[in-house]
């Protein structure tokens, strides 16, 4: 997907928050320009915002604790919100959530607005809330987020660690909307990232038209679970405005 074909484009500095309405069939391409980036993501059905990305349902339906090419991000209502239709990265975290102000200060030191004005160290929890609040959502809607461009491994005893594989300058992932999706992003650092330097890179967020999902689609055919999930998504659109198409 060449970047000159983006219909919408934004560059999000590290630590900031952003939202976009991604209608069905459009896709969001995120690129970690510096390699040191992290994109926390929440997703909601824009037509019924109590329906939202559900970490546990995503993991158990696809027998995975990482997100990669061919996976979908399930809502709590048995429908895919976003499909990972392209992915140069390979292993995105789902199980660590985001940072808060105290965690950021403990890792990177005190650097608040008083000290640094707009260069202050932002955290994920506050960024998510500031963005959720713009859409009439709040604390109840801040569920476990996905973390793109951060790889978290789990050993046999269950211990977790942020992997050096997370550092991939230019890494990109493409997320196709299977419903009309409100996407909420925070580019605050991953909660397991170590200091002392707060990340500085930018995330490029570009939207393009992905088109109808073919029957042979990689995400749809990845497993029987996803086949049924896509059928559930189609059922959501089974009653179009103005009656059925001829």
């Amino acid at each position: 997907m060449p970047s000159n074909a983006f219909l919408l484009e934004e560059r999000i500095p590290a630590g900031c928050h952003h939202a976009l309405l991604l209608k069905r069939g459009y896709a969001l391409r995120l690129t970690d320009l510096s390699g040191d980036g992290n994109v926390g993501l929440l997703a909601f059905n824009a037509d019924e915002r109590s329906e939202r990305y559900n970490m546990a349902d995503t993991l158990k339906a696809q027998h995975t604790h990482k997100l990669a090419l061919g996976n979908v991000l399930y809502s709590d209502m048995g429908r895919p919100l976003l499909s990972i239709m392209g992915d140069s990265f390979g292993w995105h975290d789902t199980i660590c959530g985001t940072t808060n102000a105290a965690m950021i200060e403990a890792t990177y030191g005190l650097n608040d607005f008083q000290l640094a004005r707009n260069g202050y160290y932002r955290n994920g929890r506050d960024g998510f809330l500031m963005e959720l609040g713009r859409w009439g959502l709040g604390r109840r809607d801040l569920v476990p987020n996905a973390n793109f461009f951060s790889t978290v491994t789990v050993d046999d005893e269950g211990n977790i660690a942020l992997s050096e594989a997370s550092y991939q300058p230019g890494a990109w992932v493409e997320l196709r909307a299977e419903l009309n999706v409100l996407v909420i992003l925070s580019t605050a650092p991953h909660p397991l990232r170590e200091g002392p330097a707060y990340p500085e890179g930018e995330i490029e967020a570009g939207v393009f038209w992905a088109g109808e999902v073919p029957a042979t689609d990689l995400c749809r055919t990845a497993c029987g679970e996803n086949q049924r999930g896509f059928e559930n998504a189609e059922a959501w659109f089974a009653l179009p405005d103005g009656g059925p198409k001829a």
Binding site: D57, L59, G78, N226
Partner: peptide
Amino acid sequence: GRHDTLGGACASESNTVRYAH
């Protein structure tokens, strides 16, 4: 000895995905 916190709760909607409509 150990307990899960990543599998979530079962629901009629996720049952259709995981098992059958």
